[in-house]
Write a protein that binds this DNA or RNA. Structure first.
Lengths: 234, 234
DNA sequence: TGTATTTTTCTTGTCGACAAGAAGTCGGCA
DNA sequence: TGCCGACTTCTTGTCGACAAGAAAAATACA
């Protein structure tokens, strides 16, 4: 809002992607919380660009469902759809399973190394008790697995789901305790081994259990939070 | 190209969606074949709109992967990715199964009626030997089922996959014979019954078999076609 | 005559300005 | 005092024009 982003001029065509990626991150990291108004003029000033490229970035974000445009009126950061959470969990679980299965079946030379790098980053975040880091490195780890599975449709949907999940987790990240993440590290290790051994059935089972863990965790956050609010009323 | 689309002026904001939907249809129906150049100026003339709303429609189509923009150079209708066909079949089959399962589990009052309407439309197209009609009504039938399953993530991905499939089928629709579609009508009926009875397992099995049928059919079209080309060389 | 280089042309990317639509504001009236 | 309607203002939607980049065409040179 107050920060002048870049006085530097962009290379032709690079402006839109800069705006797109910057806003995308800020939305996912809740730096722009759900419901925040998105003002084109303001962004135009901030990025030192005309409204046209800003608009193009916003159209892309809208296509992804990250922002909602009220026609002729305003555009805001999309709200988190708590009513749609069951659908979300269902799709997320399916993608966890399918991508891990495919990784076990299709992974090629070098894929494992990439996955291991992400796993190391996740371990580091856990060791440092960097909660925000855990959330994003966990995402990167699973996307690396999905990419090893070599199905762009799944990678795309999974990415969207994981990023939507990041928004939800950020909302509740204060309740993160350090016992579950440590367990995740172990589960990740097992998954890597199953993938290496091309044990599709085992990979599926592990992914399924892992997904259940995460879904249960998110659910507990949400219910715990609402209980807190309920106790406030006494 | 030669047709003057509409001299009428659009209501503020309705122009983009008109352009978007029109182009989307033309791409899927191969009226704009893969590789066709998309000229903004030309579209601007055709729709009697400035280049700005045209551009917005194109950005949306690009986000969906229906068109490809070569930066600073040209934008064309995306090619059909034959190398990615295995991934496509895998995802398509999974979505057939998952959506039909969910429809059996979650369908509510009125969903069946909607599905039946689409099934009737499909039957009619088969009776009339309207191949193009079969392709699009078949899509509508399965999307109706997906919607009864009540999971927007699956509906969205499935819609994209089915529409991509429409492009492929259009390429080969001349080889459509009328024995397989008749079989599809029966398979559709069975699926409807399984959904009504909330028999998830049966719905899954039928959807799986149905998907296999379709995949096999597309595969046979493609190989038959390439064989034809091969024989030409003699 | 063939190749390298300059020029032209064409399409996309960006800009600043104007128009339309909706919410909020202000004033009038019962 | 409360409600209805015109007005103002603010944001988005659209426009026409200009700039940049790349391919194609034309030209110069060996």
């Amino acid at each position: 809002m107050d920060e002048t982003e870049k006085l530097q001029t962009y290379r032709r065509g690079s402006g839109v992607s800069t705006v797109y990626e910057t806003l995308r991150n800020e939305i996912i990291e809740l730096k722009l919380p759900p419901g925040s108004p998105i003002d084109e003029q303001q962004l135009s000033d901030r990025f030192a660009l005309s409204r046209t490229p800003i608009r193009e970035a916003l159209v892309r974000l809208a296509a992804e469902g990250l922002i909602t445009t009220l026609t002729n009126r305003a555009t805001i950061v999309s709200n988190i759809d708590f009513l749609g959470l069951p659908e979300f969990f269902d799709a997320l679980t399916l993608m966890y399973r399918v991508t891990t299965r495919l990784a076990a079946a299709n992974h090629a030379e070098g894929d494992i190394a990439t996955i291991r790098i992400q796993q190391k980053a996740f371990e580091l975040a856990v060791a440092n008790r960097d909660v925000l880091g855990m959330i994003s490195t966990n995402r990167d780890f699973h996307i690396a697995i999905a990419q090893a599975g070599r199905n762009r449709y799944y990678v795309e949907l999974f990415t969207r789901l994981l990023d939507e999940g990041r928004r939800i987790l950020r909302l509740y990240y204060s309740s993160f305790n350090d016992v579950l993440p440590r367990q995740y590290v172990g589960e990740h290790e097992e998954m890597i081994q199953a993938i290496i051994n091309r044990d599709v059935a085992l990979a599926d089972r592990l992914a399924s259990a892992h997904a259940d863990q995460i879904v249960r965790q998110i659910r507990s956050y949400i219910t715990a939070d609402s209980r807190q609010n309920a106790s406030l009323a006494l």
